[in-house]
Simulated assay, not measured.
Amino acid sequence: MECISLPSSIRQWPENIFFAGAIPGPKQPSLDGLNPFIAPMVDILDHSYQQGTWFSRTYEHPEG
């Protein structure tokens, strides 16, 4: 996952990417096989979207 509020020049730096998980292979899973892996992440992101998220500091305002 990438934070799209970061400048595009640093958005894909390894220290700015959150690794949400890995899906076992060796082949691409079907949609039904993928849902159990992404459901926890979707639940967290949905809660954050519905309730809002407060950030005490950001890239442009590191002191808050």
Rank of each mutant, 00 (worst) to 15 (best):
L6K: 06
R11A: 09
V42F: 13
I23E: 04
Y49S: 09
K27Y: 04
G64Q: 03
N16I: 04
V42L: 15
P26I: 11
W13M: 11
I10A: 01
I10Y: 00
M1F: 06
K27G: 00
I38P: 02
D46I: 07
S30C: 04
V42K: 15
S5I: 01
Y59S: 00
P29C: 06
E2T: 13
F55E: 11
P7V: 03
I38M: 11
G64T: 06
T58M: 02
F37Y: 15
P7Q: 05
E63P: 00
E60W: 10
A22P: 00
P14D: 12
I17L: 14
W13L: 14
A22Y: 10
E15H: 15
T58V: 05
P29W: 07
P7M: 03
E2C: 13
H61R: 06
H47D: 11
I38G: 08
A20M: 02
Y59W: 15
A22G: 04
Q12L: 11
L6I: 02
S30Q: 12
E15D: 13
P62Q: 01
G33V: 03
R57M: 01
P7H: 02
T53C: 08
F19T: 04
Q28M: 11
L31Q: 09
G21I: 11
I44C: 05
I4G: 01
E15P: 00
I38D: 05
H61F: 03
M1L: 06
T53W: 02
E15K: 13
A22W: 02
P7L: 03
I44W: 01
M41I: 14
N35K: 15
P40G: 13
S5G: 01
Y49T: 10
P26E: 08
D32Q: 15
D43K: 14
R11D: 01
Q12V: 05
Q50R: 14
W54K: 09
Y49H: 08
A20G: 00
E60C: 07
P26S: 10
G52N: 11
P24A: 04
S9F: 07
T53L: 13
N35G: 00
E15F: 07
F18V: 08
C3H: 09
F55K: 10
F55Q: 07
E60L: 09
N35R: 15
R11Y: 01
E63A: 05
Q50W: 03
A20Q: 01
N35L: 14
S30W: 01
F37Q: 08
G33T: 01
P24I: 05
I38E: 07
R11Q: 15
Q12A: 10
L45N: 08
Y59A: 07
G25L: 11
I23M: 06
P7G: 02
P14V: 02
Q28N: 08
I23W: 08
E63S: 13
W54L: 10
I38Y: 11
C3L: 11
N35Y: 12
I44L: 14
P26A: 12
G33C: 01
I17E: 06
F18P: 00
H61K: 07
C3V: 07
G52V: 12
I44M: 10
W54M: 03
R11T: 09
T53G: 00
Q51N: 14
T53K: 09
Q12Y: 13
S9L: 05
E60F: 15
G64E: 03
A22K: 13
Y49L: 14
P40H: 11
L34K: 07
L45F: 14
Q50V: 14
S9D: 14
Q12D: 12
T53P: 00
G64W: 06
K27F: 06
M41W: 10
